[in-house]
Every structure is written in C-alpha cells, then in structure tokens.
Nucleic acid binder design. Structure first.
Length: 260
DNA sequence: ACATTGACCTGAGAGC
DNA sequence: TGCTCTCAGGTCAATG
C-alpha cells in the first residue's frame, strides 16, 4: 500500500488529527526503531507536540515543537490511525502516541518492515538515506528526470522503483505508470527516445496526482486505471488480456498488446 | 560499480 | 470447519 500517494494521504490525515496536541505518553515496539532508543524517543516526545509535517517519497516527517523530526516509513503494510476508544485501536500497533485530549495516534505495521527514526531535518535525512528527488516535487523537472534515468541500466520498471533515482514509486504505481505510458516493464533506458521520455514523465506525474486526488483509494480512481482491477485478470481497454510478469523479483501486470 | 536475488516478518486468503 | 500453502504494495545485504 504505502507508496507516494498513500503516504501523502497519511500526511494529510496526520495534519488533520495529530498536530498541535500535547503528548502525554508514548509506547513503542523497539524493533521498529532505528538509530534511536525507545527511552530517548519517549523523552523527546513526551511534553512536546507535532507542529508540522512533510513527505519525501514514501517517508513521512513529523516536526516536533522543540526541533527535530520523527520519520515514518511504512514498509508494505503500515498505516496511521487516530482514535479515542480502545475498541478502535487497530490490530498491529507498533507505536502509540497518546495526547492530552484523550486521543491516540497509532502506527500500525503488521509485517514489521516499517521503520521509525529521528532526524535533525528532512534534508539531512534524504541525503543520508540516499533518496532521489520526490517523484511529484517541483524539484524533479522533466530534464532532471531524464538525466537521472539516463545514468541507469536494467529494466525500466526496476529503475522507476529505485528510491535513489526517484523517491516514491513502488510496485503498484510502477505498473500503473508504465501501463498509462504504454511501455513494457522490461524496456531499457537505451530503448527510449525523447518523445517517450516526455510521455513517461507526464504519465508519472499524472498517475501519482490522480491517485492522490482519489485519496489513494482504487475505487475512486479514474476508470482507465489498471490498479482498480489489479491481479483479478482485469482486461485492458484494448480488449487484450493482462499478463503477469516478474521484473527484478517483483510480480507485476502488463498488457502485451499495448505495452511494447 | 552496478544490477539482481533472497531474506527479513506476519497473517490474510486460497485451495484442499 | 480447519489445516496448509502461497503470496503480499518494501528494503537491504549478499551475490553475480
């Protein structure tokens, strides 16, 4: 789930619920933490409040009033839930921040692939994690996009999913972008001409933006979106049959007629 | 140096 | 119903 559009939806949710509220208590599964102890994390949070948020690729940043940022990475199964009653607590909570207003913010992460870290500021974090520009940011112009792709070999889909090239695209949206751009996932950069790069860039931005507009909910996405019927053998609008394909170890779907 | 594969966790859902 | 097996939207260390 948590690729760029999903994390952007989480960020908005976080803004609408958890900002500007005094933190009374923190509970965390230490296995989720990296580079910070649960004692230090607790000390930093209790008595403070989240005052701001940002997103870069699949990472969510939460600014603390005293300075410093908490960072969330959701892995394959993570999400946030703001709730009051115990009955509304989700099933695999790995961190819980309790506010003085009686509500809690849970970081749920069934498979423990998510990570919570602390950083002085997002810029530093992005450098340290070797993340490329965010796929939707103004920073990633078409020229920069092309230049970054040109430095890579291997399958196009793998490059789109490489977070150090561009941050934010995972398995599902890589499939969607390639489908909309009518490109075969195993094409290489050397196969692409200028026109094709342009189309790919345009479709990447369009798919991600439309997914956010649909609140990352497949049911609300435009009818032409592949991911609405992902994995259910949904037909391509051309009438052809979607095929399963493995690219750099990840399973995906494409239309062999439309994506040459 | 770069690209690709397997291991990491856990549980939902398919298949029997 | 209940059991087993397969697979999942991500990343990184190990391998080629």
């Amino acid at each position: 789930m948590p690729e760029l559009p999903d994390v952007e939806v989480f960020r908005k949710y976080f803004d609408e619920t958890a900002l500007h509220q005094k933190i009374d208590h923190v509970w965390v599964d230490p296995g989720m933490l990296e580079g910070i102890s649960k004692e230090l994390l607790t000390e930093l949070l209790v008595g403070d409040a989240f005052e701001n948020s940002r997103r870069h690729g699949k990472h969510l940043f939460a600014a603390l009033g005293k300075g410093g940022w908490l960072t969330f990475h959701f892995g394959m199964t993570g999400f946030l839930k703001y709730y009051k009653a115990d009955a509304d607590q989700p099933g695999h909570v790995r961190m819980r921040v309790s506010f003085s207003n009686g509500h809690h913010l849970a970081f749920d992460n069934q498979r423990k692939f998510g990570r919570i870290r602390h950083t002085a500021d997002p810029r530093t974090f992005i450098t340290e994690m070797d993340l490329g520009p965010d796929a939707l940011s103004g920073e990633l112009t078409q020229d920069i996009f092309i230049r970054r792709l040109l430095s890579k070999r291997g399958a196009l889909k793998a490059i789109l999913m490489n977070q150090s090239v561009i941050a934010g695209i995972g398995n599902v949206y890589a499939d969607e972008i390639l489908f909309q751009a009518k490109l075969h996932p195993k094409k290489t950069i050397a196969d692409l001409d200028d026109k094709t790069f342009e189309r790919l860039y345009l479709m990447m931005r369009q798919v991600l933006q439309e997914a956010i507009d649909a609140e990352a909910d497949p049911e609300k996405m435009p009818s032409g979106f592949l991911l609405k019927t992902r994995g259910t053998n949904g037909a391509c609008p051309c009438g052809g049959k979607m095929e399963k394909i493995s690219v750099s170890g990840r399973n995906g779907y494409f239309c062999p007629k439309c994506q040459k």
